[in-house]
Amino acid sequence: VARVAAGAVAQRVLDTAGMKIYAYTVALGGIYAQECDLDFVEQNLLFCCDKSVYPKMEQRILEVKKEGDSLGGIVEVRVKNCPCGLGEPVFDKLDAELAKALMSIGAVKGVEIGAGFKVADMLGSECNDEITPQGFASNNAGGILAGISNGDEIIVRAAVKPISSIEKEQRTITQEGDPTTISVKGRHDISAIPRIVPVCAAMVRLVLADHLLRQRMIGEKA
C-alpha cells in the first residue's frame, strides 16, 4: 500500500512532463497475451491486456485452485512520453535503477527491458535500433541506451513467481532435519497477480520521478 501511495505522488511529478505509465498482465500460468489493448486493462480483474486470452487465464486460475497450487506470471510496464536524458551512464543507469526497484518487490524474480533475453539470439544488425528521420525503426533497447532514456517508449517486464504458500502437500524437514511434509491450509491467493500490477507501476513511477527531478536540478545548476 505504501509503495502504491508513494507512486501516486510520484505521478504528480511525472504529469509535469506529460509522462504516462501503463502496467498490465502479459502472462499468467503459461498463458501469454498476443496483443495489447490498454483500454481493456482496466476492464478486467487481472489487468490483462488481451481480451482474447483473458477467459483462458480465468479458467487456469480455477483449475490450479482445485489442485491446491499457485501461479506465476509476467507484468509489463510501459512508459509513454519519457523525455531524453534521464539516467546516468555508469553508477545510476536508468535501466539498472528500474531493475533494482522492481526486484525489490518480494515476488519478482527477474526483470527484462525492451527485447530482454531475446537479444541473446539476435545478430547485432537485428538488435540495433536503426534511426530514421521519423525516429527509431524498432525498440529492442526498450527506450534506454547506455543507461539513459532515448525518448522512445520505455518497456520493462517483471517475472512474478508463484506464491509459495500452497495447500498442495510438499516435502520439507523438521527442525531436527528429519523428512516430513507440509501443506499450508486456509485461504490464500492463487497468484500475486493482479495485486502486484499496481505495485510494479508505482516502483517505475518512483524511479522516473527521481531521475526527472535530478535532471531538472542539474539543468538549474548548469
Rank of each mutant, 00 (worst) to 15 (best):
R157K: 13
K93E: 00
T132A: 11
A146G: 10
G142A: 02
A141K: 04
G110L: 02
P194Y: 00
N140T: 07
E97I: 13
D95Y: 05
I166Q: 07
A33P: 14
M122T: 04
G143S: 07
F136Q: 07
A101V: 08
I105A: 15
V53S: 03
V75W: 01
K20E: 10
G186K: 12
T174W: 03
V79C: 14
N139I: 08
I166L: 09
L45T: 12
V4F: 05
I196K: 08
L86E: 05
E42R: 15
K118N: 12
A202P: 01
V197K: 04
R195N: 15
S104H: 06
E76H: 07
L145W: 05
L208V: 14
K109P: 02
I166R: 10
Y54R: 11
S165D: 14
G18H: 09
I61K: 01
A141S: 03
L123F: 10
C84D: 08
E169N: 00
I21L: 13
R171G: 11
V64G: 15
I154M: 02
K221W: 09
A115P: 09
V41F: 10
V1M: 14
S183I: 09
R3T: 03
I113C: 08
V64F: 12
P83G: 09
V4K: 01
T174R: 03
N139D: 00
V64T: 10
L213H: 13
S149W: 07
G106L: 01
Y54E: 04
R60A: 13
T174N: 12
A120D: 04
G186A: 14
G219T: 11
V13E: 14
K20P: 07
C200T: 04
K221Y: 03
P133E: 04
G106T: 00
F40M: 08
K65A: 12
V13S: 15
E169W: 00
R3Y: 05
A120S: 12
A120R: 13
I144Q: 05
I31Y: 03
N139C: 05
V41P: 06
R187I: 09
G73H: 07
K161W: 00
A209S: 11
M57K: 00
L71D: 05
E63D: 09
N128M: 09
P194N: 00
G135C: 11
E167F: 14
A201E: 08
I154E: 03
I144F: 09
N128D: 14
V184I: 11
G73I: 05
L213E: 13
D95H: 04
I190R: 00
